[in-house]
Amino acid sequence: MVQLAPDVPKDTGDDHDTAPVVWVVDAPGGGYVESPDIEGRVVGPHGTVRLVIVPDDERDRLPRAACDYMILWHRVPLDASFFARNTRCRAVICASTGYDHVAVEAARAAGTSVFHIPHYGTEEVADHTLALFLAQVRRLPDLRAHVRDGGWDWRSITDAPRVRGMTWGIVGLGRIGLAVAQRARAFGIRVCFYDPHNHPGVEKSLGIERRHSLDALLTDADVVSVHVPLDSTTHHLLGAAELDRMKPGSLLINTARGAVVDVSALRQALAVGRPGRVALDVVEGEPELPHWLRDHPRVLLTPHAAFYSVESLAELRTRAAEAVRELIVAAPVTSAVRVA
């Protein structure tokens, strides 16, 4: 059942003179918030903060007209029916960089503002991307397995390439893509990028190279990392045809959104070595994963953890709560970015 604090008004639909009700909405089992202590401290006397835990099969039972503001974690989607029956909700703050789990057009039609927080955790995701890169290129999973099985032979590293001089292709040169580019260049890696939305000439200021098509980037890069939001234009951006254009033996890294990479096409692509290795922090359909993917010897998986550090999680929760407070007191919203 939906776990809802008993003193949150439910199903009344009546206006009230008490402080605005703020929900922190999360999923059970591996959720992000155990207690809304940070949110309560930041919102302070301006609102009444409650944690609401919503199981997968209870999403359509969120009480009608029960909150004024919502801080929403990405494992709980809000579809059009939610906004049709919750017209009191003034704003949804997505505690994430992405907002593909919210029916944005339906929210706009219902008069509900939607915000996200793209400017947190940039360092962590970029660092994690580099960690996945080094782990795969230096064959750390293979070496660890070799030592764990009783071996101690450096030759088990087999075909590890030299990092300096490799070509790294970045798909999406936003905040995280830029941070990855800076880190990759420090290793002596040649960096190119594909991003049709970025300003012409940005490559000159960064000392990197632009590719004017995704195909050109895929055929040139030894390493491809993905840093794009998920929407209708990026869903399965890397499908069977695109994967087939990657260099033999190349490395694909995804720390963005799982559905950017067609996981069903990935199996055949790995079978022919295009790419040769994969490192994924996000997977289409997560947390349910195909058995072949979990067990594949050339796939390195981490459980959607790239965003995390002690500091980044606290920063994300604080920014989301600050955005709510700013909305309540009618101050300019500087802690989040409006999308609808």
Rank of each mutant, 00 (worst) to 15 (best):
L266M: 11
H199C: 07
W73M: 14
W292K: 09
A107D: 04
G169H: 04
R90C: 02
T233C: 08
G29Y: 07
P275W: 15
H304D: 06
E242M: 03
D142S: 09
L316N: 04
T12P: 00
A91G: 11
L238C: 13
P20G: 02
A336W: 03
V329N: 00
H199K: 11
L132M: 13
H291T: 15
T122H: 02
V52L: 12
A306T: 02
L4S: 01
D37G: 03
A321P: 10
G207F: 12
V21L: 05
V125G: 12
A271R: 09
T255L: 10
I170M: 03
V147W: 02
R50N: 05
V54W: 10
H119V: 06
H74Q: 05
V299M: 10
Y308A: 04
S35W: 00
R139C: 07
V329F: 00
P248Q: 06
G29H: 13
A179I: 02
P63E: 07
S309Y: 08
K247F: 02
D149T: 09
S213F: 10
V263R: 04
V260G: 11
G111E: 14
A305I: 04
E58H: 12
D215G: 15
I328K: 00
A5H: 03
T318N: 02
I71E: 12
S81Y: 03
T255K: 06
V324I: 15
H116E: 05
K247Q: 07
G31R: 08
A271P: 06
P36K: 09
R298C: 12
G150R: 07
V223P: 02
W154N: 05
T97R: 05
E242V: 08
A323N: 12
P248G: 09
A331P: 11
H235E: 15
T48V: 09
R210A: 10
